[in-house]
C-alpha cells in the first residue's frame, strides 16, 4: 500500500487520472418476438471529460440525464457504443485491461441493501474483491477487518453480521469498505448518500472526506442534490439529456452560472428561508423524452431565453470567464464574442 502511494506521487500532478473521450451509449428499445430494435434511448451522447488526480468531480442533473449511465460506462458495466476510456494515459482495450481499470476505479451504488449480497457476511463481502485478485483468504479477512474499522464500524461487532441486520448508513459504510478493498485510486459514488437520512448522510460525507485525505483518493461524485455536490466537489459537470451542458470549478458553476439549465436547477433548490419562499417555478415541465431528443440545443423547448438559432444549431462547449469553465449555450457564447 505504501508502495502504491509513492509511485502515485511520481506522476505529474496535473495530468488527468481518467479521461473519458466521446463516449456514447444508446439503449435500443426492443419489441416483438425476437426483440428487434425499433428505436433507442440516447442515454449518453458523445461526452468527454477529464478527472484530475485527487479531485472530486461532481456530476449533477435530473433523472434520465445519463449521469448514472456515465458511471457505469466508465467501469464498463455497460459497454459503450463508441468512445474511449483512458486511465493514467493508458487506453482501455489496448494498453489497459478491464481488470486493471476496475481495480483502480471502484463504484458505490445508491441502494445500500441491493448492493450487498444478502447471503454473505460483511467480512466475506469485503474480502471478496481481494480474494479474486489472488490475496490469500486469511490476509483478505484481516484487510476486511482493518477496512471496517477504517469506515467506523467495530469489526468485532460487524464482521460476522449480515446486511439485513444493520442500518442503511452502516450498510453504505460497508459498501465503501468493499470498494476500498481492492485499493482503487478512483471511487465513483453514484448517488451513494441520496437514500440516507440527513443526519446519517452527514456522517457518511465526513467519512468520505476523511478517507479521501487519508488514502489520496479521487472521487467522481454523482448526485441530484446540489447542496451535497456544492459541499463535496472541486469541479462540477452539469448534464442534460445525455450531454454535458456546463462544466467548471464549483465556485464559478454556482456563482457565475453560465447555462440557463444550470441556472434553473439552482433556482429550483429550496430557499431555506421561511421569509423568502420560492415564488415561481424556475423550470417548467418534465425532462423531455430521451428517445427523440429535441433538435439543436436539447434544452431549447424548456429554455426561458431561447433564440431561433437554438432550435436549429447545436451549441458546443465554449470557454467562460473563469479558467476551466465551459458552457454549451449560444447566448453565453455570443456574450463572450462581444468582450
Amino acid at each position: 500500500m505504501s508502495e502504491d502511494t509513492s509511485t502515485r506521487r511520481t506522476h505529474m500532478a496535473d495530468a488527468p487520472l481518467l479521461e473519458v473521450r466521446e463516449i456514447t451509449k444508446f439503449f435500443p428499445i426492443k419489441s416483438g418476438l425476437f426483440g428487434r430494435a425499433t428505436n433507442s434511448v440516447r442515454a449518453v451522447d458523445g461526452i468527454s471529460f477529464n478527472v484530475l488526480r485527487r479531485e472530486t468531480l461532481g456530476i449533477v442533473g435530473e433523472s434520465g440525464c445519463g449521469k448514472s449511465t456515465t458511471a457505469r460506462l466508465i467501469v464498463d458495466l455497460i459497454s459503450p457504443d463508441k468512445g474511449d476510456i483512458l486511465f493514467d494515459a493508458r487506453r482501455l482495450g489496448t494498453d489497459l485491461t478491464l481488470n486493471e481499470l476496475r481495480r483502480n476505479v471502484q463504484m458505490v451504488f445508491q441502494d445500500s441493501y441491493a448492493s450487498l449480497n444478502p447471503r454473505l457476511t460483511i467480512e466475506d463481502t469485503i474480502a471478496f474483491g481481494p480474494i479474486i485478485h489472488g490475496v490469500p483468504r486469511e490476509y483478505a479477512r484481516r484487510l476486511a477487518w482493518e477496512l471496517l474499522s477504517k469506515v467506523g464500524l467495530d469489526p468485532k461487532r460487524f464482521a460476522g453480521r449480515y446486511p439485513h441486520e444493520i442500518s442503511g448508513g452502516q450498510r453504505q459504510r460497508v459498501n465503501i469498505a468493499r470498494a476500498l478493498a481492492v485499493k482503487p485510486q478512483i471511487i465513483i459514488l453514484d448517488e451513494s448518500v441520496s437514500a440516507l437520512d440527513k443526519s446519517v448522510e452527514a456522517q457518511v460525507l465526513n467519512l468520505l472526506l476523511d478517507l479521501k485525505k487519508e488514502l489520496d483518493l479521487t472521487y467522481i461524485f454523482i448526485s441530484h442534490d446540489l447542496n451535497v455536490v456544492k459541499f463535496m466537489a472541486d469541479r462540477v459537470i452539469v448534464m442534460y439529456l445525455g450531454e454535458i451542458v456546463e462544466v467548471g470549478p464549483v465556485e464559478s458553476i454556482y456563482a457565475e452560472t453560465a447555462h440557463p439549465y444550470s441556472r434553473s436547477l439552482l433556482a429550483s433548490m429550496p430557499s431555506m428561508d421561511p421569509d423568502h419562499r420560492s415564488e415561481h417555478v424556475a423550470l417548467a415541465g418534465d425532462p423531455p423524452n430521451p428517445i427523440i431528443p429535441p433538435s439543436g440545443c436539447r434544452f431549447h423547448p424548456r429554455c426561458p431565453i431561447a433564440i431561433p438559432k437554438c432550435k436549429t444549431e447545436k451549441p458546443l462547449l465554449h470557454i467562460q470567464k473563469t479558467r476551466g469553465h465551459l458552457a454549451a449555450c449560444h447566448l453565453t457564447a455570443q456574450q463572450q464574442e462581444t468582450f
Partner: peptide, 26 residues
Amino acid sequence: KLDYVEAAKASGANNFTIIRVHVLGN
C-alpha cells in the same frame, strides 16, 4: 440485475466466480 452482482463485476470477478458466490446462494 441487482447492484451486488454489478459490484462483484466491478471488482473484477469472472462470470463463473460471480455465479458461484453471488448468484447460486440467492
